[in-house]
Amino acid sequence: MARNQPPANQAPVVQRIRLRYAKRGPLRFTSHRDFARTFERAVQRAGVPIAYSQGFTPHPKVSYASAAPTGVASEAEYLEIGLRARVDPAEVGRRLDAALSPGLDVLDAVEAGPGSLADRIDASRWRIELPGVVPDELRHAVVAFEAAAEVPVQRLTKQGWRTFDARGPVVLIRVEEPPSEVSDVPCAILDLVIRQVTPSVRPDDVLSGLRVVVGLEPPVPPRATRLAQGTLTPQGEITDPLLADRTGAVTGVPPG
């Protein structure tokens, strides 16, 4: 029997849709692998006509832009799906959002235009809350960090401890004014823009950097949130990576 051959061809991709989604609250502890599995099941439940790769073990066509680290919340994660039938992107977004657990929320859905998503993402904006840290203490650390030409930090990776510079890719680092309401516990807030480089510099690496320069030790683990991802403008702003797709759709440029 001719059994050692891949099964019948999978239907081709006829439409690509890009999604922006958030990872919030307790579900920020979802790892990227966890999210990928969960998303594939949500696609099944939502009845989205996802396309599959060819071969013995066909995989749903989903590709991800760089994912926020486990434990970091995000308002700006991106992915792209390939579909075997055309559908209204907004409808897909609504259905997927309903199928995903609250805390994994689809925020935007557009039909993909030309060019790759990855090419439109070269920086992220992060917000880090540091409960138990007085804003002035953080300001002091930030000044020292900015003044340094290089801040070597270490991180444990799968290949062991790696040392790299946490200062270079940091485009902006500043302390936000604390909210006006008075609280018993101080909570300093850090606003960060980091350029995407290899190896990537993540919010916790910048916190390691603050420890390196002035010995800042937050008493409890800080809470980081990615606020935006996209193209860094010369003014230091971050452009929505789906903007080009949306504009393309409006001006009637055919997809792909």
Binding site: P26, L27, F29, T30, S31, D34, R41, T70, G71, S101, P102, G103, V220, P221
Partner: peptide
């Protein structure tokens, strides 16, 4: 106990297992 548990989770392996939020 979540407010007391949450700050511990960044310090442990695979924190998602303690979070709940399963479908069903």
């Amino acid at each position: 106990v979540w407010p007391r548990l949450e700050p511990l989770l960044p310090l442990v392996s695979k924190p998602i297992q303690y979070v709940g939020g399963e479908l069903g």
